[in-house]
């Protein structure tokens, strides 16, 4: 059975899984931005916390994803079987690139620009929102891009703990040794990653002030 055949016969299910996959990625990346950007900004204000926080985010990144999903299952509140646990794990993975790039984007603003802003009487909040975040936006977006692309891939493994998504086909295909089935899950996931990469890449170049 070829791929197109499979898709036309199972179009409803395919769309459902694509939807689930997008949901996992969007929610987790969104949450990682909400947590990661303020955290990254905080690190520029409290440089002493930089090592421990980035170190911890690094540790999450190095845990194999399947193992992380497994570790989370027995935990109360955030654990269990299903999408919630998967989202928690995906957030932990997405955090590092977003926190690190936010820190670097904000800290990388030309010190002369920062000094001029402070010297002219901008408050720290004004400096952050009018100068540092806009100037660091391209770098922050690059972190979001990496996080999104990684999430699309990692989310396929979420199927292992019953969170759904395109990994369902991949795991099923591996179990029954069916290449078409594996491809049916892998191909849309790959396209999704490429699309996210392309779109966010365009946005990133649009905001790369420093390159000018």
């Amino acid at each position: 059975m070829n791929l197109w055949h499979f898709y036309s016969r199972n179009s409803q299910e395919v769309l459902g899984l694509v939807g689930q996959h997008l949901y996992l990625v969007a929610i987790s990346t969104g949450a990682a931005i909400v947590i990661g950007v303020p955290l990254g900004v905080l690190l520029t204000r409290r440089p002493a916390w930089r090592g421990p926080v980035l170190g911890m985010a690094n540790v999450f990144q190095t845990v194999p994803s399947l193992a992380l999903f497994g570790f989370l299952i027995p935990l109360p509140f955030i654990g269990g079987i299903g999408a919630r646990t998967a989202i928690v794990a995906l957030v932990l993975y997405a955090l590092l690139p977003i926190v690190r790039n936010t820190y670097e984007g904000v800290a990388g603003v030309d010190p002369a620009v920062r000094e001029a802003g402070r010297g002219m009487g901008m408050t720290d909040w004004q400096l952050l929102t009018q100068v540092e975040l806009p100037l660091g936006f391209g770098v922050i977006l690059a972190g979001v891009r990496v996080a999104t692309v990684v999430s699309v891939g990692t989310a396929t493994i979420a199927a292992a703990i019953g969170a759904g998504g395109l990994g369902v086909y991949i795991f099923r295909g591996v179990a029954v040794v069916d290449d078409t089935l594996i491809l049916a899950g892998a191909l849309p996931a790959a396209l999704m990653a490429l699309a996210a990469d392309g779109l966010l890449g365009v946005a990133e170049r649009r905001f790369a002030w420093r390159a000018r």
Binding site: D110, A112, V113, E115, A116, G117, R118, G119, L135, R212
Partner: peptide, 15 residues
């Protein structure tokens, strides 16, 4: 600071 004009060598214009 808003009462004091400040000019530095690197200018520090907002790009």
């Amino acid at each position: 600071r808003r009462r004091i004009g400040y000019v530095i060598q690197e200018v520090g214009l907002f790009p």
